[in-house]
Design a protein around this nucleic acid. Structure first.
Lengths: 184, 184
DNA sequence: GTCTATATACAGATAGAC
DNA sequence: GTCTATCTGTATATAGAC
């Protein structure tokens, strides 16, 4: 764990950025190497295969998710509210990691599907003590999944910036209030 | 519109099935041709490019979505309930089309993102008269998106059949009741 | 630890026979 | 309308120099 090589992290960041901005098809090892400023051979020293590169990205995602849950549990506004608000994402490391992981999952990676499922279970366990019953818990999780899904779909087309189906500002506050009232 | 050639529809069905079962990476023109029982040249007579193949699939998806909304509006149990229940999908043509379209979207197709956005607007307009306000409308749509997203992620790994994060049976009934109470 | 050069495989697409 | 054969580009991965 000590301190991963600088170049290794650069490659991982570049691969993640490519997945987010251009999708799994464009996120090739070649493109990642170029974006990270190393040669293909250099990349392959750190990640012997594409699978190894993907695995490393997913491990980083799960680590960030664990840290994020710990932070949310300390939020004064309440974990349900903090959880929903964080589902719209604002370019934080965990948000970027989750979008990239989702791209891998939909691109066909079984490992990514498994990793995302584990992250969702983490959220489920953290939220359970703060919801009335299982139905209310599922409501909160599903609204979050919906927010996340819509947001993730939009990211891919940077030119689009569609007014977006995702509530913002006052509309988001109202939605959180409605879900909290139903769930608590 | 009259009556598309049989072989053309077979190719479209095979392409859709590949997207669902193995993801966008495995859904190649070659694989689609083989699964449909035609040669690559035969496929290319009907669809001159991969883009044309994808466009045809997305057009079929939008047509099915229009028909599906019309049917839901006639449901006696109410459109909100019918809409949520249909979000868990049961291998109907519209469900399969939506999953395949979502695979294309996450695979990087801007056209697929646009098509899915149009379908979502269709739902939005059909549900608006049956919800209390915009916040309630967004709640219903987001829960549906969440159900759909989770279900779509699961499909890809056929061996998995994870107990799944998606509520079933009585749990689903309870969820629908909770959303309806919040939204109506 | 990072590089260049190269092998292998396969996707998308074209040409033209039947 | 469907086929075979082939071209071209590009992705993953290997070999080995520096």
């Amino acid at each position: 764990m000590s301190r991963p090589p600088r170049a290794r992290e650069s490659v991982l960041d570049a691969f993640e950025a490519l997945l987010i901005a251009e999708g799994p098809k464009a996120a090739t090892m070649d493109a990642a190497a170029q974006a990270a400023g190393v040669s293909k051979g250099g990349l392959l020293y750190h990640f012997a295969s594409k699978e190894a590169l993907e695995t490393a990205l997913l491990e980083r995602m799960e680590q960030l998710a664990r840290e994020d849950v710990a932070e949310m549990e300390a939020e004064p506004e309440g974990i349900v509210s903090a959880f929903l608000r964080s589902s719209v994402m604002d370019d934080s490391p965990i948000d970027r990691a989750l979008i990239a992981g989702s791209r891998l999952a939909q691109g066909g990676s079984a490992a990514a599907v498994e990793a995302l499922r584990r992250v969702r279970e983490l959220w489920e366990e953290a939220l359970r003590p703060h919801t009335r019953d299982e139905t209310a818990l599922q409501l909160v999780l599903l609204v979050s999944d919906g927010l996340y899904f819509n947001n993730a779909l939009g990211v891919q087309t940077p030119g689009a910036t569609v007014p977006g189906p995702v509530p913002e500002g006052a509309a988001m506050d109202a939605l959180i209030a409605l879900v909290e009232a139903s769930a608590r």
